[in-house]
């Protein structure tokens, strides 16, 4: 859904940009008005914006100011469309999302207002041209006039800007709703989050702890082994002593018996 939204916003921004550039091109290229002249040649003289600005006639200069307003509006639409797309990128990066979102909404609203202004000033231009004698809106064919071309572009801009702002506003409302939900959920699960934040700090602590614990375990195991070994050695000594003690007694008895027999034999020999 998000990717679709990004694509839509991208497409609409591209359309707004394209239409505003086309509008700017139309305003400077197209012949807006035609004036009926008698000198030096009888006929209709066609005026584009450049010619109107350099004209001697005050009515034509006033009309050129109205076209200038349309021109600047188109240029502002272009700037706002690019800025709102830039804010959309900033919003996507989540660096300062609230400000970016505000900028997106402001940009969208500004484009709508400016496109309405373009349409209104275009209508106003056509009306004032009809009121002035000797001046008429120049025509492509008999029924279609050149002044309608920027008007059509303005209508296209209004439609695309309304859809763009609608999507952006809808998305921002959803975003704020999600934020509120997230806030509620964070309040409930604040403790686990705190733990997860501390995990990075604890990683290094874990290493040292594990190292110390391993060393302790090794020491304890060696101590335990040495103590057990001494116990075994003592037991073996006792056992050996126990084994050795009866043999000694026997030996002693044997020696005693031998000595006794020797003494007896000696006594017998003396008696004889």
């Amino acid at each position: 859904m998000k990717k679709v939204l990004t694509d839509k916003v991208g497409k609409l921004t591209a359309w707004i940009m394209f239409l505003s550039i086309i509008g700017l091109a139309f305003t400077s290229i197209l012949p807006w008005i035609s004036v009926t002249e008698t000198t030096p040649v009888e006929g209709e003289l066609f005026f584009n914006l450049e010619m109107m600005e350099k004209s001697h006639n005050e009515d034509i200069i006033n009309l050129s100011e109205k076209i200038n307003l349309i021109d600047t509006s188109f240029f502002l639409v272009l700037i706002f469309s690019i800025l709102s797309y830039l804010s959309f990128i900033i919003y996507r990066s989540r660096t300062c999302s609230s400000f970016a979102q505000l900028m997106i909404i402001v940009g969208g609203c500004a484009i709508i207002i400016l496109s309405v202004l373009i349409i209104f000033s275009n209508f106003n231009f056509i009306k004032t041209v009809e009121d002035i004698e000797g001046i008429s809106a120049s025509y492509m064919f008999t029924s279609i006039k050149y002044a309608y071309m920027p008007l059509i572009v303005g209508v296209g801009l209004l439609i695309s800007s309304v859809s763009y702002t609608g999507i952006v506003v809808f998305y921002s409302i959803r975003y704020f709703r999600d934020q509120l939900k997230q806030k509620k959920s964070t309040q409930k699960t604040s403790e686990p989050e705190k733990i997860s934040k501390k995990t990075t700090e604890k990683d290094e602590e874990n290493i040292t702890k594990t190292m110390l614990l391993k060393e302790d375990l090794r020491k304890k195991s060696t101590e335990h082994l040495t103590s057990e070994c001494t116990e075994i050695e003592d037991w073996l000594k006792d056992e050996l002593q126990n084994i050795e003690s009866p043999t000694k007694n026997i030996k002693e008895q044997m020696e005693k018996e031998e000595e006794e027999t020797k003494e007896e034999t000696k006594e017998k020999e003396e008696d004889e």
């Binding site: 004036v35 002249e37 008698t38 000198t39 030096p40 040649v41 003289l45 005026f47 584009n48 450049e50 010619m51 350099k54 004209s55 001697h56 006639n57 034509i60």
Partner: peptide, 14 residues
């Protein structure tokens, strides 16, 4: 050089 009432420039470029 032969200007009309409204303009001396007929092609929009000077």
């Amino acid at each position: 050089n032969n200007c009309s009432n409204s303009s001396c420039n007929y092609v929009g470029l000077t």
